Computed example of a mutant assay.
Amino acid sequence: MPPTDLTTVLMVNLLSDAYQEVQGGVPSSLTPAERAALVEYLGGHPEKKVAVLRLWQERLVWQRSDPESAASWLDNEFLSPDSLTRKEARP
């Protein structure tokens, strides 16, 4: 599903799954193509990124997780220019 068809809640769910994967959790269901589309969309729509991050951080606080660590991961790993090549290089 293209990111333009996703609600903010669905984007939060996808990011949460991807974040849990890098934290040692179960693999994310995002395909490389879906991940690339989400990276491109959020990178090009800062207002949507802010809305998604705000909702995700609220959820993380409720779950007693670290919202700042997740925000850092989003900016420095998930949305970084080389994030897609790192993801594709994983076994």
Rank of each mutant, 00 (worst) to 15 (best):
L74N: 00
V22F: 08
E34K: 07
A33S: 14
E77A: 10
R35W: 05
W73H: 02
L55V: 13
S80A: 13
T8F: 06
D66H: 03
D75E: 15
L53S: 03
A51F: 02
L60R: 09
R86N: 10
E68H: 09
S83K: 04
K49V: 03
P27M: 09
G43L: 03
E88M: 15
G25H: 12
N13R: 13
P2K: 11
E40A: 10
E34M: 08
P81L: 07
G24L: 04
G44C: 07
V12N: 01
L42S: 01
Q20A: 15
A33H: 12
P81M: 05
R35C: 03
R59A: 09
V50Q: 15
P32L: 14
E34Y: 03
P2W: 10
Q23I: 03
R54L: 08
A36K: 10
R59H: 09
L74R: 00
P91K: 07
S28N: 05
Q63H: 14
T31G: 06
P91D: 11
P67Q: 01
A89K: 12
A36E: 08
K49R: 14
P67T: 02
P27C: 06
D75K: 11
S83M: 07
A51I: 01
L79H: 01
E77P: 04
F78N: 00
E88S: 11
N13S: 12
G44P: 04
G44L: 09
L6F: 05
W62L: 08
V22P: 02
P46L: 09
S29D: 15
D75M: 11
G25P: 08
P81T: 07
Q63G: 02
L53H: 01
P2D: 11
